[in-house]
């Protein structure tokens, strides 16, 4: 009969796993109870999953977000998905505005419109959207920025009808990314030149993994955004044609290392 053994009971093994854990966030060297995970690891996993689930299902507090953004002007909108359950099943509805919301938008003929949507992590948006917008503003000096649109039950492409209705030259969509177990509050930015019906995902630029657990920080994201916005407006495009032209952009599209390399 074999007895339950954890690798951490031995000093040599302990040191090895500690060294290896420094190189990856993967759940390695967890030990065993029989064939199963030790209870502590089971509960750690469940807690991480619970945090990710809460990030998906906790509603975005739109009023609090508007308050955080003040005095910048904001408008509160909703997509055509009436609730979270519908939103998760019907991505097409999350890409459109509700009829009531569409009627609220008036043209502003601005260069840029910020669209902030909850996406799959309201947690990310609640935490990062306002400070990220503030970090971006100095990078966008000289460009006209319209009313900031806050959208509930939003997918990335909801920026297309909004941008078109605003008459904006480019839309900047800030949205909560699909949460993982290690990071539940990651924000992404999507840029679309000449937003409107029929835009494809290949016509957008993405700056992803903006979060505080080894992800991209606000300043770095804002610098990348500033460069992409100016280049995109100058060249009259976003998407594939604007990729791979600057090392910084490559860095932003890749997932950053969890720990600095020794």
């Amino acid at each position: 009969m074999s007895t339950p053994t954890k690798p951490v009971t031995n000093d040599g093994q302990h040191a090895l796993w500690d060294r290896l854990r420094a190189r990856t966030s993967a759940r390695i060297g967890l030990g065993r109870v029989g064939t199963a995970l030790p209870l502590d690891e089971v509960l750690k996993f469940q807690f991480a999953h619970a945090a990710a689930r809460d990030a998906v299902h906790t509603p975005l507090d739109m009023a609090a977000l508007a308050h955080d953004l003040a005095p910048l002007p904001t408008l509160l909108l909703a997509s055509a998905a009436p609730d979270r359950a519908t939103y998760l099943r019907r991505p097409d509805l999350g890409r459109q505005l509700s009829a009531e919301s569409a009627a609220l938008i008036t043209p502003e003929r601005c260069d840029l419109v910020f669209v902030i949507g909850d996406g799959l992590s309201a947690t990310a948006v609640q935490q990062h959207a306002a400070p990220l917008v503030r970090a971006c503003l100095p990078e966008l000096v000289g460009l006209s920025i319209g009313t900031i649109m806050l959208v509930q039950e939003a997918r990335v492409a909801v920026g297309d009808p909004i941008g078109a209705a605003m008459g904006a030259r480019m839309s900047i969509v800030l949205i909560g990314e699909r949460p993982g177990l290690s990071v539940a509050d990651s924000l992404g930015i999507y840029l679309t030149y000449a937003p409107g019906p029929g835009r494809m995902d290949s016509e957008r630029n993405c700056i992803s993994n903006i979060h505080g657990h080894g992800g991209l920080d606000y300043a770095a994201a804002a610098r990348t955004l500033g460069w992409l916005v100016r280049e995109g407006l100058k060249r009259g495009l976003t998407g594939i044609g604007l990729k791979d032209e600057r090392p910084a952009l490559e860095r932003s599209s890749a997932q950053p290392p969890i720990l600095p390399k020794p």
Binding site: T24, S25, A26, R27, I28, L30, R32, G34, T35, A36, L37, E41, F45, A48, H49, R178, P179, G180, L181, S182, V183, Q255, I258
Partner: peptide
Amino acid sequence: VPGADDVMLNYQSLSFHDILYLRS
């Protein structure tokens, strides 16, 4: 994957432990 948590693709699969459970 280690601990059923794919830290790159951000989804949950089976763990190495799960394979041991099935073998056992």
